[in-house]
Write a protein that binds this DNA or RNA. Structure first.
Lengths: 143, 143
DNA sequence: CAACTAAATGCAAAAAGTTCGCATTTAAAT
DNA sequence: ATTTAAATGCGAACTTTTTGCATTTAGTTG
């Protein structure tokens, strides 16, 4: 039990270092939380999950640093505050409930197939895309 | 010249009324600006384009009201401030340059075809989606 | 492992971006 | 022309995010 935790913690540290970041305890904690989470988290959520030991400025700075290095992905939904997720899979999206803000994953996405045509048409070098769906979840449909 | 302007202004007023909103001069001005713009605009951009005669609180209130009534569409890119566009076409998206923030339109989108399957899988009633591409535009590629 | 350096942190203060309460004005219905 | 509900302007407040600076820490070097 304790051993597995230690091992994965070491792995996270190595991962951070490999991306040119110091493996501070804050960052390891944040990454562990994000890795465990099945949905993208806000700064607020991350803060409370860290049992509030982390400073908000540091939190923002860390998310920015990890975002820049492609360790996490920053997602803007529409409530005006950013969400972050561990960047494991490429091409993976979300459905957001407009009533209760519940977020679920959407796996298969064929958008990447559109990109070659799009690059040609717009003359942009397209690096990334975000696809989010908005609707009403099963629980909120009943109300 | 003057006549055509008057006519379209009347049309905008009728449009606003048809959506249950009073046709105030602020709203007509805002809608005219958004209709003319080829790209989504921030609150900031709207404010300056109104030659700053409009109050910021009013601006926010108007965008919220028009958003709710599907007159305009609110889009969140990743710089943390919302953009708004006149809601003419359905299913129409954007490429955003991550270096200079230039925004271009993307017309054809086949995402709506995915929705029936997705509704079934997630049990969400999906109302809307947003698809945005991020990359480097032709001018910034040269630098 | 002690000493060092660049990076990261905490704090408080300030910037952005957005919302609210309330008195006044305006659109449109009567 | 009068009336009323909706919209506005203003300032203050609130939320989210950023910054400057002194202090601490991670990782490196001798």
């Amino acid at each position: 039990m304790k051993k597995t935790q230690k091992i994965s913690e070491e792995a996270l540290k190595r991962f951070l270092r490999s991306k040119g970041l110091k493996a501070t305890s804050d960052r390891v904690t944040l990454l562990a939380i994000l890795k465990k989470s099945i949905k993208p988290l806000t700064i607020e959520a991350l803060h409370t999950k860290c049992v509030s030991t982390i400073n908000r400025a540091t939190l923002y700075r860390n998310m920015a640093a990890m975002s820049q290095r492609d360790i996490v992905r920053k997602i803007e939904f529409r409530h005006g505050h950013a969400h972050y997720e561990f960047r494991q899979q490429e091409d993976h999206h979300h459905v957001v409930c407009v009533k209760c803000d519940r977020i679920e994953d959407v796996q298969d996405c064929s958008v990447s197939e559109l990109i070659p045509k799009l690059s040609q048409k717009t003359n942009f070098f397209i690096q990334e895309h975000s696809l989010e769906f908005f609707g009403v979840c099963s629980s909120c449909k009943k109300i």
